[in-house]
Deep mutational scan, measured.
Amino acid sequence: KAKLLVLLYAFVATDADTICIGYHANNSTDTVDTILEKNVAVTHSVNLLEDSHNGKLCKLKGIAPLQLGKCNITGWLLGNPECDSLLPARSWSYIVETPNSENGACYPGDLIDYEELREQLSSVSSLERFEIFPKESSWPNHTFNGVTVSCSHRGKSSFYRNLLWLTKKGDSYPKLTNSYVNNKGKEVLVLWGVHHPSSSDEQQSLYSNGNAYVSVASSNYNRRFTPEIAARPKVRDQHGRMNYYWTLLEPGDTIIFEATGNLIAPWYAFALSRGFESGIITSNASMHECNTKCQTPQGAINSNLPFQNIHPVTIGECPKYVRSTKLRMVTGLRNIPSIQYRGLFGAIAGFIEGGWTGMIDGWYGYHHQNEQGSGYAADQKSTQNAINGITNKVNSVIEKMNTQFTAVGKEFNNLEKRMENLNKKVDDGFLDIWTYNAELLVLLENERTLDFHDLNVKNLYEKVKSQLKNNAKEIGNGCFEFYHKCDNECMESVRNGTYDYPKYSEESKLNR
């Protein structure tokens, strides 16, 4: 008799109507990190870190770059004969040098303040090359056809396309004075040089004057150069050297050249137009028929994500570079809930034993079982409120962090190594801060989002509990077992918050 009662009780308990509160689960393989956990499985997430590029040089917003090819900045601007293909260059979106560009200054020497000139050019998007001192009329008392084997072109001695090597005419090199007034309405880049012979005999042979000088002056520039005559090792078949100089001439300003020898005179100059998204990159990537809004030396990035880990040097509207390998923000729920887990921000989770793959029309909802059958029903209101809140948060985070910009490298010469090392340390410090901030932001927001979901499920549970009161009992896994019969209409009233407690209280009292 006792065995019969136990079996009867078990049958009745199993047959009781139930309603459970749960949440969506799926077959997603997404994982995120939080402050407290690593690799948390979630139903949905968004990636904030771009880690792919196309490996190509592309047009930037429809404008092609200027590819210097086998030449570098120095060779292009001075007019190395091997860089003749660059003479027609007028406009570009950015400038590309190759790491091993070999054609710079063909006659050995240095372009002074080269690093600063590169910085200036990094904001130039177009130029006009014009004859600042016409070759045939500007130097009537001097020979202007100086050439050298060091600047050979097609097997013949030649010289820079933008400079003139002035030497004596006959047996004399009379003092020369020439000036140019900038009437271009924009900055003009003027380049010139000073020749330093290897011996007094060479000085006399070329310029006749043993104590020659070169003077260059404008409103913002004033220097006097004296040739340094000295024996030097042979470089590119030359014992002599040429140093090259430049200045930016403001609109309306005048530049005056005065010399008694050794002047490498300007022939062509450049009127410059600035462009905020221009820059110089060093890259071996090849040019393709493609378009982008962000270019790196590795390749083009076409992404609206706020961060990238491809390269710190970028041109155009680019994500911020960070050292992170993963920045994924959760938008959905835990896919593998932890039992009795309390989140960092106070939300209680884990009283549900598992997510439901059968509930596909919402994030949170119900599963019921009664004599009429069983089924899932999503709670659309709480789901939609959660979707709206999380979507707004993700968009806000992306908008705040998605300050796209150009980031170019800084140039230092060989004598500025300590400054370069200090600059690298400062840049590394800023990069570490950006990386830390980005990672911390994602970790915190992921923790908040998961706790937010847990709290929403808990609130749904409490909503049902407050309606049923003692007409049902909690069975410990997020479910309630009714003390009365609850048909589909009754189940719907529980879900929509209109459950009639008094209607079922007498039946429940008897069954309790």
Rank of each mutant, 00 (worst) to 15 (best):
S45E: 05
C151S: 13
K135D: 12
Y23C: 10
T282Q: 14
T247F: 09
V12F: 11
I280D: 09
Y23V: 13
N222C: 09
R232E: 09
F159H: 10
S45K: 11
N27H: 03
I73Y: 01
G275P: 00
V190T: 01
H196G: 06
F257I: 15
A212S: 15
C58R: 01
S101R: 04
I112H: 14
T31K: 06
G193Q: 08
N243L: 11
S200I: 11
S52C: 00
C58H: 04
D17L: 02
A231L: 14
I256Q: 12
G252Y: 11
L8Y: 14
G155V: 01
L272C: 13
I256D: 05
P108S: 06
A2M: 14
S137C: 00
V46K: 12
F11A: 09
K59F: 11
E258G: 10
S125W: 04
A89F: 13
G240C: 06
K234V: 15
L77P: 04
D33Q: 05
K70T: 15
S138Y: 03
K61C: 00
K135A: 12
S200Y: 12
P197T: 06
S179L: 09
L7M: 09
L249R: 00
Y9Q: 07
T31R: 11
H44E: 09
D253V: 00
E258D: 13
A89C: 07
T18E: 11
E115G: 12
P266W: 05
A89E: 12
P233H: 07
G69W: 00
N26S: 08
L206W: 11
S157E: 03
N209D: 05
L189R: 01
N178W: 00
N162A: 01
H24K: 14
H44Y: 08
L206Q: 04
G79C: 04
D237V: 02
L248Q: 05
G55K: 04
S172Q: 06
V6D: 01
L164I: 10
T260P: 00
T254F: 06
Q203R: 00
W192Y: 14
A231W: 13
L87R: 01
G69C: 03
R274D: 04
S219I: 03
G146N: 12
V181Y: 11
N27I: 00
W165P: 06
Y173W: 15
R236Q: 09
S93V: 03
G104F: 02
Q67K: 07
C58K: 04
A212V: 15
Y244V: 03
K175G: 09
G193N: 03
H195Q: 11
N80K: 11
L49M: 05
W139P: 00
S199T: 13
T148V: 00
D17R: 11
C71H: 04
L8V: 11
F270P: 00
E37N: 12
T143A: 08
E128R: 05
L164V: 15
A230S: 12
L57D: 01
R161E: 09
K3Y: 10
V46P: 01
W165S: 09
N39W: 07
I281E: 12
Q67N: 05
W192K: 11
L5P: 03
Q238P: 00
G104K: 14
A269G: 15
R223F: 07
P266E: 03
L206K: 10
G275H: 09
A269Y: 00
F11I: 10
G193L: 01
Y207D: 08
N54P: 03
P251D: 11
H239G: 10
E128W: 03
E97G: 10
A231H: 09
I132H: 05
L68D: 11
T254S: 14
E37V: 06
T18H: 10
K61A: 10
N211K: 13
P134N: 13
I229N: 11
W267N: 14
L272I: 14
S208D: 12
W267T: 09
K186G: 06
S85L: 12
S52K: 12
V190Y: 06
H53K: 07
N220V: 05
A231V: 13
E50Y: 11
I63R: 15
S278E: 02
P227N: 14
H142K: 01
T31H: 07
T167V: 06
K186H: 06
G55Q: 05
N103A: 10
H44S: 15
E102K: 07
V149Y: 11
R274V: 05
I280V: 15
V188A: 09
H195W: 09
E228T: 14
L48F: 09
N222L: 13
N47Y: 06
T148Q: 04
S28M: 03
N47W: 11
N222E: 11
K38V: 03
R161Q: 10
K59R: 15
S91T: 13
Q120K: 05
L87T: 09
D171Q: 10
W76Y: 09
N222A: 11
G69K: 12
L164A: 13
A10D: 05
D237P: 00
L191H: 03
K56G: 09
T226M: 10
I19S: 09
S172E: 15
N162L: 00
T226A: 12
P88N: 12
L127P: 00
L191N: 00
D15E: 13
R232D: 11
P251G: 11
S152M: 05
Q238W: 01
K168L: 10
I132L: 15
S152Q: 14
S208T: 13
L111T: 13
N209F: 09
N262Y: 02
H53F: 00
Y180N: 03
E258H: 14
A89M: 13
N178Y: 01
D30A: 07
Y180G: 00
L77V: 14
L249E: 01
L166I: 15
P197W: 11
I112T: 14
T74C: 13
L48G: 04
V40G: 07
S150Y: 05
I21F: 05
V46Y: 15
Y221N: 03
E187D: 15
R223S: 09
F276Q: 13
L78M: 08
T148E: 01
S199L: 07
R241E: 06
W76F: 06
T143G: 15
L5G: 02
S93F: 07
N222G: 10
W246M: 05
L87H: 07
R161K: 15
S198K: 08
L86Y: 06
L36H: 00
P81M: 08
S179R: 06
A259N: 09
P197F: 07
V42L: 00
T29P: 09
G55I: 14
C106V: 01
T34G: 05
Y107N: 10
N222P: 00
N178K: 03
P88S: 11
C20H: 03
E119S: 11
T226Q: 08
P233L: 15
K135T: 13
V32K: 14
F276T: 14
G109V: 08
V149I: 06
L121C: 02
R90F: 11
D30P: 01
G55P: 02
N39Y: 04
T43F: 12
E116F: 04
E37T: 06
S52Q: 13
N72Q: 11
N162R: 00
V42Y: 11
A217D: 03
E37L: 00
S137M: 13
P81K: 07
N183L: 13
F133K: 10
H142N: 12
Y268T: 08
L66Y: 11
V188I: 15
D237T: 15
L191D: 00
W76I: 10
E37D: 09
S205Y: 11
T18G: 00
N47G: 00
A271G: 07
G240S: 09
E97Q: 14
K135N: 03
C20Q: 06
G55E: 11
K169F: 11
C71S: 03
N26K: 13
V216H: 11
L163D: 02
L87W: 15
L263W: 15
A16K: 11
